[in-house]
């Protein structure tokens, strides 16, 4: 069983993000970067599938400048077997991300690709679906539970949908995107971290993969949300009702 898992480097969601003065991106000085939390869940799922099968390989792929190798190493420290770094200067838009991933998937020929349902930095939530379409593979998004058939031919995936869960069966190979409740990622142990330092990592340029990037999105401007106005403390329930009724007009 070969499992390809994608990880994206994103700003630590627990840190305060500030937009730079030019409005072209965020201030990266003193920022901490982590594996996109949904991708971390994807890595965990990959490891669990391999552990349950008792055989297989978990391959991590990340796209971006050389610093993304930190996130690949972090995934290797959790227990993944090897890494692939697709070396590009900046993070491509979802379509180009999917193109690069398609090339990697064709090269690696995995039984399954597991991705996060979205990256928490730009929140597009498109790459997984695009990748499946380009490969012509089945897809199961927002996964809540994943089970692989003994002969690796099918997967049964329970998905989070509005108001409940939906269970579908898909043919493998397929693309699965992880939702929040799929699992609780493990802690990388010290021995895991040390072992990760010597695990293999291949680096490819888009050209090595036969892909030419053609951006389809242009970032026009980034701005911070307006500051939240301070709250007030009401004296009585009547006052609260009055404000809800006449000021906020919600009841």
């Amino acid at each position: 069983m070969k499992i390809l898992v994608t990880v994206k480097r994103v700003p630590d969601p627990d840190m305060k993000v500030r937009v730079n003065a030019e409005g072209t991106g965020i201030v990266e000085d003193n920022m901490k970067f982590v594996i996109n939390p949904f991708d971390e869940i994807a890595v965990e799922e990959g490891l669990r599938i391999k552990e349950k099968k008792g055989e297989g390989e978990v391959v991590i792929v990340a796209i971006g400048p050389s610093v993304v190798q930190e996130q690949i190493r972090a995934a290797l420290a959790m227990g993944a077997d090897r890494g692939i770094h697709v070396d590009v200067d900046s993070y491509p838009d979802p379509l180009n991300t999917a193109k690069l991933l398609k090339a990697v998937a064709e090269k690696e020929a995995p039984n399954i690709v597991i991705m996060g349902k979205q990256a928490v930095d730009d929140d597009y939530g498109q790459a997984g679906q695009m990748l499946a379409a380009m490969l012509g593979w089945a897809q199961a998004t927002f996964a809540y539970k994943v089970e692989i058939a003994d002969d690796n031919s099918k997967a049964t995936v329970t998905r989070e949908v509005d108001g409940g869960l939906e269970t579908i069966e898909i043919d493998l190979p397929a693309v699965v995107t992880a939702d929040l409740r799929l699992n609780e990622p493990r802690y990388a142990s010290l021995p895991g971290i040390m072992k990760a330092k010597t695990k293999p990592m291949d680096v490819f340029k888009p050209a090595d993969l036969g892909v030419e990037l053609s951006p389809v999105l242009e970032l026009v401007r980034m701005e911070e949300p307006p500051p939240r106005k301070g709250g007030i403390i009401v004296e009585t329930v009547d006052e609260l009702l009055d404000k809800l009724r006449n000021e906020a007009k919600v009841i």
Partner: peptide, 10 residues
Amino acid sequence: PQEYVLLRDQ
């Protein structure tokens, strides 16, 4: 070093 940063995050 990166491995310490990773360990500290965990």
